[in-house]
């Protein structure tokens, strides 16, 4: 079990071309995520969280360094290989749900499977299975516009999980949800992680959401700043997170 699902070493990301305005968004980032781990990425706005997630998810290209997901080095891949890799190995949950409004909930969840070429007869049982895991069986034939934000995010989660990816990447999944729905989504993610051993990497700036993780990496100005593990209750972990975040603010205020 303890084989890394994600291995990141000496990762650098520079925005902008050589002779333009350059911005060093990630500087020498190194970390691993073990299979079945639930890891949170935190940091102030502009720290490079989304950049890190985009680079890991192959949506954006790193400037240097290596990223291995499930043993595959993705930094050397071509466009089509990357697309295939995403569709097979990764699942995404975004802040703004990113559901396709012209497809029903069922079709939205089924899409990653059809894209992988799973035969139609195997799709339905898979979709229904993941839908029941996330408690959205009742709305399966509805269109996204007719369901609530919390339900939408569950659908997005179902879509991210249906093809059993090596890792689920979530960027501020609770950002557009009220606290009740946010809590319920986080509990679902924990459930998936614990009972189905789904590896999850969660980007968030919400300490409460982050407190559901087992481990949290803090980044600031594109660099890993600190790492904390949860070995106590969620409440005390929450407090620990708040303390670290308070540390962030202090040096900045001195500038």
């Amino acid at each position: 079990m303890n084989q890394p699902v994600l291995h990141v070493s000496h990762l650098d990301k520079v925005y902008g071309k050589k002779n333009e305005n350059q911005y060093h968004a990630l500087k020498d980032v190194n970390f691993d995520i073990q299979s079945g781990e639930f890891v949170g990425i935190m940091g102030p706005s502009g720290a490079g969280k989304t950049t890190l997630l985009n680079v890991i998810s192959t949506l954006d290209q790193s400037t240097s360094g290596t990223i291995e997901i499930a043993g595959t080095n993705i930094t050397a891949m071509k466009q089509n290989q990357l697309a295939d890799f995403r569709s097979e190995q990764l699942g995404f949950i975004f802040q703004d749900f990113n559901l396709l409004e012209n497809l029903t909930v069922y079709e939205n969840i089924a899409l990653p499977l059809s894209l992988k070429g799973v035969p139609s007869k195997d799709i339905k049982p898979n979709v229904l299975k993941v839908a029941s895991k996330l408690g959205i069986q009742e709305i399966i034939d509805k269109y996204p516009v007719t369901i609530s934000g919390g339900q939408k995010q569950r659908v997005a989660a179902a879509r991210a999980l249906v093809h059993e990816p090596a890792m689920v990447l979530a960027d501020e999944p609770t950002g557009a949800l009220d606290s009740k729905n946010a809590k319920s989504l986080m509990e679902t993610l924990v459930h998936l992680n614990e009972n189905h051993h789904t590896s999850i990497m969660l980007v968030t700036h919400d300490p409460l959401s982050a407190s559901y993780c087992q481990r949290i990496l803090f980044i600031q100005d594109g660099q890993l700043y600190k790492e904390i593990h949860r070995d106590t209750t969620r409440n005390s972990f929450h407090q620990e997170i708040l303390d670290v975040l308070a540390e962030f603010a202090t040096p900045n205020e001195l500038d």
């Binding site: 295939d84 890799f85 995403r86 097979e88 990113n98 012209n102």
Partner: peptide, 16 residues
């Protein structure tokens, strides 16, 4: 636009 961006994110090849 956002639909195509989303599809790209979940790994649909450009040719597709």
């Amino acid at each position: 636009v956002h639909r195509y961006h989303m599809l790209r994110k979940i790994g649909v090849r450009r040719s597709l």
